[in-house]
Design a protein around this nucleic acid. Structure first.
Lengths: 249, 249
DNA sequence: AATGGCTTGATGGTCTGACCAATTTGCCCT
DNA sequence: AGGGCAAATTGGTCAGACCATCAAGCCATT
């Protein structure tokens, strides 16, 4: 009972000044802004904590968190390195729980559909010649992978990200990349189904054609169709695979 | 069983036997398996590290990492609690957006438009009676704030978030919340323009009407119009208010 | 009896400083 | 020149201490 209609002024918007937390955000911004690029070696802990003016303990909590979500990689006696963006959040541990929650997956897939659909539309409006070529290139590469019997997961990812690039909205691009990373495992399983990769290629081709002809509406439709089919396949996999979770890697 | 003696065991499977990492896995499994349910208070650090047989430092690194990815929530003097699943990945998604630091305001606003437009459409399809009431409530509250001459920033935020709630997609909801937080200062300035709040009220009303009548198309259109007007106003403010890109912390 | 303030204990946050373990580097001895 | 040992570097771990905050209980005033 009791409706808290006594709308208080909502003071104190909880600004927890945790040293570790601010260090965490600080470090993340380094990685994301490109101050520290993928493959870079970041300063040693003992040096970093002095720069930040905090104890090594506090710094390490932040570093460890970043390592566990796949942004950093530490090697004793060697140093700590920045991981490529594509590996963010791809730590197997995260799949453990993401995989057990069906609802979450559905939300992720829906979010992805919404974002990528609009991104495809924007790309159709804004893509430059070079960007179109980049998109086409991923399709070509996918065909090659297919012929060689290699995995097309990465090329598939590249296709969608180059479209996001062509949409010229960094915010949305990053969001899409994150969502795809979250789904990575299922995408992998989906692409492992025999006939699927070939269908994907032709769908990618259709999406590309729509974007290349600068037809936003067609691009949105094509992308939507593609992602909806993916969603159905993934749900089938999840349903079927709902028993023995493989401990891959 | 620790043989740190001289060379011998040629095995050494190189499994990153990092204490922190195994603690992390251990703790995650507790949360995932339901040993610790959402809302539960987990044992104090000083107790946990004894159970696990590791130092508090190592445990804290794991604990902190889990907190930073939204699985746990620590409160000084109170304890550490398990977060609901819906919050697990909210922070990572957050980084994806904040990550684009140089992402211009324009990108953010565009991203917001895209997300909220679709969210409005989904809300029109999915909103329950209670959720509709919640939306309507924010409009009423905004009118009250207006009469009292109070700031409507918070109610404005509430309006959009209740719509996001009604769309039933936690992932997108979190994204919208973040984007709005990023724009907060500009939104504040926008709402400070004399005639604006009244216009906002009527626009909110229109959006609500569309959602309440379960008309996704109308809802999308209404939301789009509302946000585009906001975007224009904000850009005017920015243009007028042009100065240096503060390098605040 | 009810209220408000004070004390105390529990708990997370932070720091210091030390040592261990793995890796790299480079010098020394053969 | 080559092999191997030792120091330096760097992340991993530990112990113990202190602070800030919150909850609960005690006590005095009303």
């Amino acid at each position: 009972m009791k409706s808290k209609s006594s709308a208080a002024k909502t003071v104190t918007p909880l600004v927890r000044t945790t040293l570790t937390e601010s260090a965490f955000e600080h470090l993340i911004s380094y990685v994301v802004n490109g101050t520290w690029k993928a493959g870079d070696r970041i300063p040693p802990e003992r040096e970093l904590c002095q720069q930040l003016g905090i104890a090594r303990t506090s710094l390490r909590e932040a570093l460890k968190a970043m390592e566990l979500i796949g942004m950093l990689d530490s090697r004793v006696g060697d140093g700590t390195f920045v991981c490529p963006r594509s590996e963010f959040l791809s730590r197997p541990l995260l799949w453990a729980f993401t995989g057990t929650d069906h609802a979450e997956l559905q939300d992720i897939m829906e979010a992805r559909l919404i974002l990528e659909r609009d991104l495809a539309g924007l790309a159709a409006e804004r893509a430059s010649v070079a960007e179109l070529a980049a998109i086409a290139d991923t399709i070509t590469k996918m065909k090659i992978c297919l012929d060689r019997g290699e995995s097309v997961l990465e090329v598939d990812m590249a296709f969608h990200l180059t479209i996001a690039d062509a949409a010229h909205n960094g915010v949305l691009r990053n969001a899409v990349q994150l969502l795809r990373n979250l789904m990575r495992q299922w995408l992998y399983l989906k692409l492992a189904i025999p006939t699927v990769p070939h269908r994907v290629v032709s769908q990618h081709q259709a999406i590309y054609d729509a974007i290349a002809s600068h037809n936003p509406d067609a691009a949105r439709k094509a992308m939507e169709g593609h992602l909806e089919e993916t969603a159905h396949l993934v749900f089938d996999i999840v349903k079927r695979d709902r028993r023995s979770p493989k401990s891959s890697t």
